[in-house]
Design a protein around this nucleic acid. Structure first.
Lengths: 322, 322
DNA sequence: CTGAAAGCGCTTACAG
DNA sequence: CTGAAAGCGCTTACAG
C-alpha cells in the first residue's frame, strides 16, 4: 500500500480510504487510486487489516467426519453462504472425537475466526466461546441452533407408514446418544401413533450397521423398517436384496437424508430431504449478526417406491375365503 | 502478550522468546512464563505473527465440487495431513467453473495462504502463482503434480478383463476434457490389448449419466462395460438391474475410485482404489518444502463380483452341438 | 478533501 | 540472559 501511495503521491491513509470506498476522498482521486491499484494488481494484506480491526473475515467450520456422506453437503452450502458475504471458511474435521472437537475449536479461535459453525459430535456440549457460534444440530435450545425439523420429518414418515396400514414397525434408530437421531425417532413414533407395535434398535449410523441389521431381520417380524439415516436404509436394502427379501412387497423401508444413492437403490428409497442451503444461510446470517436467532428449518418427504401397504398374509379377504 | 509481560515484569520480547522456545531465555524464566501463559489462557495472535513473519500457517484447498463424492475424501486427507504439520486449511469450492476457480485462487492468495493445493477443474491451466502449489490431477508434468497412477489402474482393470476373456468392451470414458479420465481410459486400452474391440462413449462422470448409459446399453453389443468412474458404473448397474440384465452373467462392469457404495451394489463392484492419505501427505509435504517434487502414487485393484468370463453364447460347445 | 500519527500484536536483529 | 526499538500493513480518529 505504501508503494502505491508513494507512486501516486498521496498518503497511505488516502489510499486506504479510497479503496474502502467510505467516501472521505474526492470521487476523482478515489477513482484514480482504484484504477492504479487495479492495474498494479494490488491486493490489501489481510494480516494488516486483521491486526488493526481485530476481524479476519474468516468463519471456522467444524464437521464431525467429512467421509460421512452427509457432511460435505453441509460444508458446501456453508462455504457458499459464507463466500457470498465475503467470508472464507477454515475447515476442521473433528474425526468424530470429542477431544479433537475441543482442540479444533481452540485452534480456530487462535487463528482469529470471527465466528464458528459446528456440527457437533453427538452428545457434546460447547460452551464459553468468545465469538458468535451456530450449532447445526437438532433442538433449537440455546437460540444459537439451526436445525432441520428432524422430528417433523419423522412425523411425515410415520404418518405415511401408518396410512399405508403398517402397525408393526422396526425402527433402526441410529446412535443412542445422537439428539438428531433421537428427534427423528420421536417423530417417527408420533406419526406412527401409539397403537403401533414398535421395536427399536440402536446402532452406528453406518452402511455397515445397516447391512448387519438387514441380515438379522426376521421376515414377518415387522411390516416396515424405518431408519433414522439413509446410510442405514441403504445397507438394509442391500442385505435384504441379497437374501431375496422383496421391498416393498415383503417389507417397506424408509430412510432419512436423501443421499443421491437412494435414487438408484432397488427399489428407490422413500426418505426425507433437508434444506441445506437454507440451513447454511441461517447459520451464516446468525453468526454474522444479520438475524438474531437460529430456527427450525422445514423438511420434506421424498416419496419413492420402497414403501407400500403391508401384504395381508393372514387377514386378507381372499385368503380368508379359501 | 504485553499484559502477560507486564504481569511477569519482563519484556514482550522475552515472553515471545520463551514461548517460541528458541532458547534465548534462561530455562527457569522460560518455564515460569510458559506456565503463567498457560494458566492465563494466553493464545498468541495469529494476525500479529502473520503480519510480522509474512506467514499465516494456512493452506488453501480448492476442490471442484464438494458434492461429488470423490472430493470430500481428498479434503479430509488433506486437512489431516496439514493439521499434523500445524497448518489450517482454508476451503474453497470452485463449483466446477474455471472462472470461479481463478477467483478462488486470488481470494486465497489475498488471505495470505502460504501454499495452495488445487484439484483443478478439468481442462484448466494454473500459472503464475506466487506461493508453492500442488496440483492433484493426473500427469506429473510440472513436477508439482501429485497424482494417483490412473493409467496404471486402467491397465490393471484392462488386463483383468482380458484375462477373463473379454474381447469386446464398451468404455464409458467420462468427460473428454478430463486428463484423469483420459489416463484411465488409456490404461484400459493398454491393458485390454490391441486386438480387443473397443467402443468409447464420453459423458459427464455423474450417476445420472451412468443411468442413461445403462438404459441405452444393447445386450450382446459388448461383454464388458469398463467405466472411468464408480459413479458411472453404479448408475449403469442400477439401470441394468432395472432392465433385468444380469451382471456379471450377461455383461461385466467395472468402476474406478472405490466409493463405499460399490460395496453394497448388486453385484459389488470391481474397481480401483486410490491411496488418498499418501497423496495428501505428498501434496502437503511438497508445498511445505519437505520434499522437492510431486510423484505418481500407486493404485490398487479391488476385485469384487461384477466381473466374470463372458458367456459363450454362440461359440459354446454345448450350443454348437444342438 | 487530505495527511501525519498512533497503534493493533507479534518477532527479530541489536545492544547491553 | 534480557530489554528497547523497529517494523510488518493496515485503519481510524484527529488536525489542518
Amino acid at each position: 500500500m505504501s508503494d502505491l501511495a508513494r507512486r501516486l503521491g498521496v498518503s497511505v491513509a488516502t489510499v486506504s480510504n479510497a479503496l474502502s470506498g467510505k467516501g472521505r476522498v474526492s470521487p476523482e482521486l478515489a477513482e484514480t487510486i482504484r484504477r492504479t491499484a487495479e492495474r498494479a494488481g494490488y491486493v490489501p494484506s489481510h494480516a494488516g487489516r486483521a491486526l488493526r480491526t481485530g476481524k479476519t473475515g474468516t468463519i471456522g467450520l467444524i464437521v464431525p467426519d467429512l467421509s460421512n456422506p452427509l457432511f460435505p453437503t453441509f460444508a458446501q452450502a456453508i462455504e457458499r453462504a459464507a463466500k457470498r458475504r465475503g467470508y472464507a471458511v477454515l475447515l476442521a474435521d473433528s474425526l468424530d472425537d470429542a477431544g479433537q472437537q475441543a482442540r479444533e475449536i481452540s485452534t480456530l479461535l487462535a487463528r482469529g475466526a470471527d465466528a464458528l459453525i459446528v456440527i457437533p459430535r453427538r452428545g457434546t456440549q460447547i460452551e464459553h466461546i468468545p465469538v458468535p457460534l451456530a450449532l447445526l444440530d437438532s433442538l433449537a435450545t440455546a437460540g444459537n441452533t439451526v436445525a432441520s425439523d428432524h422430528r417433523g420429518g419423522g412425523i411425515l414418515i410415520g404418518q405415511h407408514l401408518r396410512e399405508q396400514g403398517h402397525r408393526n414397525v422396526l425402527i433402526l434408530a441410529g446412535n443412542e446418544t445422537s439428539t438428531v437421531a433421537g428427534e427423528r425417532v420421536a417423530g417417527l413414533r408420533e406419526g406412527l401413533g401409539s397403537d403401533v407395535k414398535l421395536t427399536t434398535v440402536h446402532s452406528l449410523a453406518s452402511l455397515q450397521a445397516g447391512l448387519e441389521q438387514g441380515h438379522k431381520f426376521q421376515p414377518g417380524s415387522a411390516t416396515a423398517i424405518a431408519c433414522a439415516y439413509d446410510t442405514l436404509a441403504l445397507g438394509v436394502l442391500s442385505a435384504l436384496a441379497q437374501r431375496g427379501i422383496k421391498v416393498p412387497e415383503d417389507v417397506s423401508v424408509t430412510g432419512f437424508d436423501d443421499l443421491i444413492w437412494g435414487q438408484i437403490s432397488h427399489p428407490p428409497l422413500t426418505t426425507v430431504r433437508q434444506n441445506f442451503n437454507e440451513i447454511a444461510e441461517i447459520a451464516i446470517g446468525f453468526v454474522t449478526g444479520e438475524i438474531d436467532r437460529g430456527q427450525l428449518v422445514p423438511v420434506e418427504m421424498v416419496m419413492r417406491s420402497s414403501t407400500a401397504a403391508p401384504a395381508k398374509v393372514s387377514s386378507s379377504p381372499l385368503q380368508g375365503a379359501v
